[in-house]
Design a protein around this nucleic acid. Structure first.
Lengths: 334, 334
DNA sequence: ATTAAATACTAAATCGGTTTAGTTAAATAA
DNA sequence: TTATTTAACTAAACCGATTTAGTATTTAAT
C-alpha cells in the first residue's frame, strides 16, 4: 500500500524522474520533451493515480502553498465570517489555511507565530493581540509575508487592513443624535487595542461636538464582559439617565440588550441602542438593532491581495500596504 | 538572513549533525551522548535561535503533526464552536489544524480530501457532506486516520462521533407535549444527511406515540432556507393551526422566530417553539428559547481521542470507534 | 593478555520531490 | 566535411531533517 512516487512512474515508463517531474509540472514543452513521451507519462501517472508528496515538493521549493490565519476566537461570528471568507478565496488561489486561535493571549500568539514560521507557511494573516510587535517584526524582517487585519500596530510600518474605527464610532453617535438622543452612553472593553481606543476616542469626540454632557463612558473587563456589561447598562440607565447607548462590539450589545429587556425600561423608546459590528440576529430581534457593519468580505479580499503582492514580490514603490476600509451603517429600528 | 539549520550548528560545535539532531530531540541520553556535549549543543542552538525546519522533519519522519478539519461552514456558530474547541485541544497536543469548508459541496469536499492527503496530514476530522463515501473509504483504507463527526455514513464501518439525533428530536417533542401542546409542527431541511433523517424520524415517532394528528412536517430547501422557512411557519400556523413547532436547526429557529413575531400570533402562548441546536442568543431573546444542546466540547474531545487512538495505533479489538453522544435539553421559556 | 562491552560519536542513506548542468544523437549551417 | 545548433533526455546535487549501521576509543571482564 505504498504511495506512488515519481520514481515509480519513472521506472514504469523507463525514463528519468527528471523528465517525469518536468512533464507532470506542465513544463514538458518548455524543456522540449517529446509530445509522445509527455502523453505517455501523463497517462501512466493517471493510471497509477499519482499524487505528488507535497511535503517533498515543499522542502524542495521552499514554498508550502499554505498560509496561516490567526484570530483571537472562532465563536465570535465576526471572525467566523472572516475565516470562512478567507478560506474561500485562498482555496481558489490554491492555498491552504492553517488555523490558529489566540484567545487574546500573547504567549499563545507567539507560539503560533513561531510554529507557523517553522512550518514554512508562505504567509501569515493575523488579527493580533497587539502584544507581539517584536515577534511580528522579526518575522516580517526575515522575509515572511504578513498582513495584520482588524488590529494593527500603528507605531510600526507593517502591512495592514483595518476598519475605520474612529469614523465608525462617530457614525454610531451621529445616528443616535439624529434620532434625537441627548444623553448618550458608551460601553466598551478594557482591551489594549488600537481598534478599541479609536472607537472610544471617536465616541468622545462625536459627543463633544454635539451634545454637552458628561461622558458616560463605561469600560468593562473583557474577561467578565457579560456581568460587567449588564452592570454598566444598569448604571448608565439608572444613575446617568442615558437615552442612548453605543456598544463597542456586537457581543456587548447582545449582553446589554438582554439586560435592558429585564429592566423596567421602555426600550427602545426611552433608551435606544446601536452596536459597533453587526450580528446575524440583529435583524431578527424585535426591535431590530441598528448596527455598524464591518465589510468582512472586503477586509478578507484586501488582506489577501496585500499578502499576495508580498508573496509574488510585486511590491513597487507605489504599492500601498496600509488600508483603512470604511464601515457602513445598517439602520434598523433602534 | 539564512535560516539556521542543523548543519550550521554542527559546524559551530564541530560535531556531526547526527549528534546535534539527537541531542536537540532529547535523545541525547538514549544515544549516550556526553552530558557536556549535550549542554554545549543546547546552548549553541539557543544562541543561534535554531528552529527546525518542520517540512524537512516531516519529509523524514513521514508525520506532519498536522490534522485537517473539514466542516460545511464556519458562519454556523455550531461549527465555529467545534473548530475552536478542536483547535484548542489539538494545539495542546502539539498538532496544527488545516481548515477546510465545503459549503455542502461534495466536489469541494473531495478536492479538500485529496489535497490534505497529499499534504501528508496525520489525520482528518470531517463533518462530511455525506456524498463522498468512496473517497473517504479510500483514504481510510490507505491508512490515513479519519474520524467522521456530526455526520457519518451509517452503511460504512468508519469511525464516527455523532449526536443522538433521533433521541434529540424525541426530547424536543416530549418537551412540547409536556407543556400541553396538542398539534405540533416540524420544519426541517431537504439535506440528504443521516442526522437530518434521524431527527425527522424521531419527530414522527414521538408524535405518533403521543398525539394523534397529521404530521405537519415541512421540508424546506436549504438553499432558500430563510424564505422557505418563513413560508413554512406561516402554513403551519395559519393552515395547520399548530400550537408548537420543532425547528430542525438553530438557524431555522432563528428564521422562524423572526417570522412568528411579524405574524399576528400570541407567541409563545398560542404557539411555542423549540430548536434542535442551541444558539448564543436563545437566552437573550425574550422569551428565551428552549433548545436541545449538542455537547460541542464532548464531540470535539471524543473525536480527537478517537483519531489519536488511530494515529498511535493503539487500536485493540475492544476499541470502539463508533460513538453516539446524548444531547441535553436546555429548557427555557418557550 | 585477550576479549567483550560500553562510551561517544559519525558517515551515509533516506524521505520524494525540484533543478542545474550536462550528455548524446540528430539536424542544420558554414 | 566539419562545426554548430537543436532536440530529447539524464545524472546528480539539493532542500534539511531523521536514522541505520557503523567506527574508534576506553573500560570492564575472564
Amino acid at each position: 500500500m505504498k504511495r506512488v512516487s515519481l520514481d515509480m512512474i519513472a521506472k514504469e515508463v523507463k525514463l528519468s524522474k527528471t523528465t517525469v517531474s518536468m512533464v507532470l509540472n506542465g513544463k514538458g514543452d518548455l524543456h522540449k520533451i517529446n509530445p509522445d513521451t509527455q502523453t505517455l507519462i501523463l497517462s501512466v501517472a493517471k493510471r497509477l493515480k499519482f499524487r505528488p508528496n507535497m511535503i517533498a515538493r515543499n522542502l524542495s521549493t521552499g514554498s508550502s502553498m499554505t498560509l496561516a490565519l490567526i484570530v483571537p476566537r472562532m465563536i465570535d461570528t465576526y471572525y467566523g465570517l472572516i475565516a470562512e471568507s478567507m478560506e474561500q478565496i485562498l482555496s481558489k488561489l490554491g492555498y491552504q489555511v492553517l488555523l490558529g486561535t489566540t484567545h487574546e493571549d500573547p504567549v499563545k500568539e507567539k507560539e503560533l507565530l513561531l510554529t507557523f514560521e517553522a512550518q514554512q507557511v508562505d504567509g501569515i494573516l493575523i488579527a493580533s493581540t497587539q502584544h507581539n510587535l517584536e515577534d511580528i517584526k522579526a518575522i516580517s524582517d526575515a522575509g515572511l509575508p504578513i498582513v495584520l487585519f482588524d488590529r494593527h500596530y500603528p507605531e510600526a510600518d507593517l502591512p495592514y487592513v483595518v476598519v475605520d474605527n474612529y469614523l465608525g464610532a462617530q457614525k454610531l453617535v451621529r445616528h443616535l443624535i439624529e434620532a434625537g438622543r441627548k444623553n448618550i452612553g458608551y460601553i466598551g472593553l478594557n482591551l489594549d487595542l488600537t481598534a478599541i481606543k479609536d472607537r472610544q476616542i471617536g465616541f468622545e469626540n462625536a459627543i463633544e461636538d454635539h451634545v454637552k454632557d458628561q461622558h458616560n463612558l463605561k469600560i468593562v473587563d473583557h474577561k467578565n464582559a457579560k456581568s460587567d456589561c449588564r452592570q454598566a447598562v444598569e448604571e448608565l440607565i439608572l444613575d446617568q439617565g442615558v437615552d442612548g447607548i453605543v456598544f463597542e462590539t456586537h457581543y456587548l450589545a447582545l449582553f446589554g440588550i438582554a439586560k435592558i429587556r429585564e429592566m423596567d425600561v421602555d426600550y427602545p423608546n426611552a433608551v435606544s441602542i446601536v452596536s459597533f459590528g453587526d450580528h446575524e440576529v440583529f435583524s431578527i430581534f424585535r426591535p431590530e438593532v441598528t448596527a455598524l457593519v464591518q465589510p468582512v468580505e472586503k477586509i478578507a479580499q484586501n488582506s489577501i491581495d496585500m499578502l499576495m503582492k508580498q508573496i509574488e514580490n510585486k511590491l513597487n514603490s507605489t504599492s500601498k500596504l496600509h488600508e483603512v476600509v470604511e464601515p457602513s451603517m445598517e439602520v434598523r429600528s433602534t
